[in-house]
């Protein structure tokens, strides 16, 4: 089983920074009609789904919800398991969340027991393969980001650097997966869900994308991307 790359949904748990952190569902015809679940902090894609599902349970709307991701179909599904009809609400900046989960924020959603995203979620990209060297010690690493069309660089000390080549099929990527390749990300090399360590070499790597030195299109029809990224992984002191 190949790995994947997942981004983080940011939240400070308060009213600030609304986008990409609050899942809202509206049920029919119970009261209260809507339930809003705001993440309590930044969470990686899969943990965010689990957190939203847990909050939908603890906030006790009428429905019993499951928020899941199907790695084969590459879709997120929000469903009730007790027959309650509902619809997701993507209002204002929650449209960001819709795209992050692979839903269309502009679509009209009816009251159903299950809603599945129509696109690959922006928060995750399943990979055909990941080529990874063991992280190397780096007293100094550079990070490049793009902001409003301008590039800038800053750098970190006391990090390790891992160079990864991510191989993916273009038709299986999120439409704009470049957004997934900045800031803090987590790259699963395999199905192993523990962090990489000296005794767990196929575990995931988590850090800041500091460089994207190569991006190749493969095959005759350029249907594959081979993206090389450098990941700065903080060392604990």
């Amino acid at each position: 089983m190949a790995g994947c790359i997942e981004g983080f949904a940011f939240s400070d748990g308060t009213a600030k920074f609304r986008a990409v952190n609050t899942l809202v569902v509206e049920e029919q015809p119970t009261s209260p009609l809507t339930t809003a679940c705001r993440l309590s902090g930044p969470l990686v894609f899969r943990d965010a789904l689990v957190s939203w599902q847990a909050m939908l349970f603890s906030l006790t709307p009428a429905g019993v919800y499951a928020v899941t991701y199907d790695a084969t179909a590459r879709r997120v599904t929000i469903a009730t398991t007790n027959g309650i009809h509902f619809r997701p609400v993507w209002a204002g900046l929650d449209a960001e969340l819709a795209r992050w989960l692979g839903f269309d924020p502009n679509a009209t959603y009816g009251f159903l027991t299950s809603h599945t995203g129509t696109a690959v979620p922006r928060g995750r990209c399943d990979l055909i393969g990941v080529d990874s060297d063991p992280p190397e010690d780096a007293a100094r690493v550079d990070m490049t980001q793009v902001r409003l069309g301008r590039a800038f660089a800053s750098a970190f000390g006391n990090h390790s650097v891992a160079r990864l080549t991510l191989l993916s099929r273009r038709d299986k990527q999120p439409d704009d997966w470049c957004w997934l390749l900045q800031g803090r990300v987590r790259v699963y090399l395999t199905t192993d869900t523990a962090a990489q360590s000296a005794t767990n070499l196929d575990g995931y790597l988590e850090g800041a994308v500091i460089n994207q030195p190569a991006w190749d299109r493969l095959d005759d029809d350029e249907s594959f991307d081979a993206m090389t990224i450098e990941l700065a992984i903080p060392r604990t002191t």
Binding site: F10, D12, T14, Q145, R147, L148, R184
Partner: peptide
Amino acid sequence: MSVWAPTEFGWGVCY
């Protein structure tokens, strides 16, 4: 929490 907090997770700012 300042606007800079989420920059760790790929956010930016617009001046």
